[in-house]
Simulated assay, not measured.
Amino acid sequence: MFETLKVFLRNRKAAIGLAIVLAYVAVAIFGPMLLGADPMARVGRPHVAPDGEALLGTTRMGRDVFAQLIYGTRTSLAVGFFAGLLVVLIGTVLGITAGYFGGVVDEIINFCTNIVLVIPQLPLLLVIAAFVGQTSPVVIAIIIGVTSWAWGARVTRAQTMTLRQREYIQASELIGEPAHRMIFVELLPNLLSIIGFNFIGSVTYTIITQATLEFLGLGNPMSVSWGTMLYHAQNSSAITVGAWWEVLAPAVAVAGIGIGLSLLNFGVDEISNPRLRTLGTIAAAAKAQEKIDRQRAAGKLQGAAQ
């Protein structure tokens, strides 16, 4: 495990992305406890610019933007991770089932997957959220989770079908290994990189989609999240009246977690993909050779000058 962690941290993208994500997680867990403030309480005059008392200013209702940002981090990350787990669970179960058993089971699951893939996802989410009404963050997470599993199921199915043709899998089947052992012992460990890739991508998509739905007014306006902060800023015409801090804080928070998760995703992909690892090694060797060539050229110039 420590060797795996060392390999992971050697990748610059993965290390930076992990540091950003862990910083957000620390804020989500410990921030509200250390802050000890009510994000919905009125603490000052409307639209006060950032100062010593209000680090990120106040909203139109006189609420502390910094407190809302801290509490919103917990809500948005909780929704993202919960929906990501739901997407991975559904996609992995259906993908492995279809790829391993094949036949009629594969045809039925593949048919359902194709239907979900064909339907435009964001319009579907907008219709469902509008039909349900002002939804809580948990309901938004469930809606995203049950409508976003198709891509992960398709990729998992394809990789499972590839692994099922390996000699050690076929040998285990010939000696009578039960299906549940084949799936959990032989297949699942070889699918961990794809599952991790799917989870990180699902969390990123969920956080951005939740903010979009709540910004459009399809969430619960009384909850505190980055999306509802943007929604209230829009309704109060924050940009028009010059209260830029009310929009900037949640927008930077969404962008920051998106960058962190994307870097983490790129790093995991490079580590788990042998072709990308080879390209990285070749690029590093080329840079090292270029540095040596420059040093040699500089040495020749100095020798000629002397």
Score class of each variant (00 low, 15 high):
Thr240His: 11
Ile200Val: 14
Ser223Ala: 15
Met229Gln: 06
Leu188Asn: 08
Met222Gln: 14
Arg181Leu: 12
Leu192Cys: 08
Phe184Trp: 15
Leu192Ile: 09
Gly219Ile: 02
Thr204Phe: 15
Met222Val: 14
Ala238Asn: 01
Leu191Thr: 05
Ala243Thr: 05
Ala243Pro: 09
Ser236Asp: 11
Pro221Gln: 14
Ala171Met: 06
Ala171Arg: 07
Gly201Asn: 05
Phe197Ala: 15
Gly176Leu: 04
Leu192Gly: 05
Trp226Ser: 02
Gly242Pro: 07
Glu177Ala: 15
Leu218Pro: 06
Ala238Glu: 00
Glu177Tyr: 12
Trp226Cys: 01
Ile175Val: 14
Thr212Val: 11
Gly242Lys: 06
Ser172Gln: 14
Asn198Met: 12
Thr240Arg: 13
Gly242Met: 07
Gly242Trp: 05
Thr204Asp: 10
Gly217Lys: 12
Ile194Thr: 14
Trp244Val: 11
Leu218Ile: 10
Ile208Ala: 01
Val185Gly: 10
Asn190Gly: 07
Val241Trp: 08
His180Tyr: 12
Ser225Gln: 06
Glu186Trp: 14
Ile239Pro: 03
Asn190Ile: 06
Gly196Ser: 07
Val254Gln: 02
Val247Ile: 13
Thr240Gln: 09
Ile195His: 14
Ser193Cys: 08
Val203Trp: 08
Asn220Pro: 07
Met182Tyr: 06
Trp245Met: 00
Val247Leu: 10
Met182Phe: 07
Phe184Ser: 15
Gly176Pro: 08
Phe199Cys: 02
Pro189His: 10
Phe184Met: 15
Leu191Asp: 05
Leu230Pro: 02
Gly227His: 04
Gly176Asp: 12
Thr212Lys: 12
Phe215Thr: 04
Ile207Pro: 00
Gly227Pro: 05
Pro189Gln: 11
Leu218Tyr: 10
Glu173Tyr: 06
Pro250Asp: 00
Gly219Gln: 02
Ser237Glu: 05
Tyr231Ile: 10
Ser225Asp: 02
Ser202Pro: 04
His180Leu: 12
Ile175Met: 11
Gly242Val: 06
Gln234Tyr: 13
Asn235His: 12
Gln170Asp: 06
Glu214Ser: 01
Trp245Arg: 00
Ala238Gly: 04
Gly176Glu: 09
Ala251Lys: 04
Ala233Gln: 07
Gly227Cys: 07
Ile183Arg: 09
Ser225Glu: 01
Asn190Asp: 11
Leu187Glu: 07
Arg181Ile: 10
Ile183Pro: 03
Glu246Pro: 03
Ser223Leu: 09
Arg181Phe: 10
Phe215Val: 01
Leu230Trp: 03
Gly217Thr: 10
Trp245His: 01
Ile175Phe: 13
Met222Tyr: 14
Ser193Ile: 08
Ala179Gly: 13
Val241Pro: 06
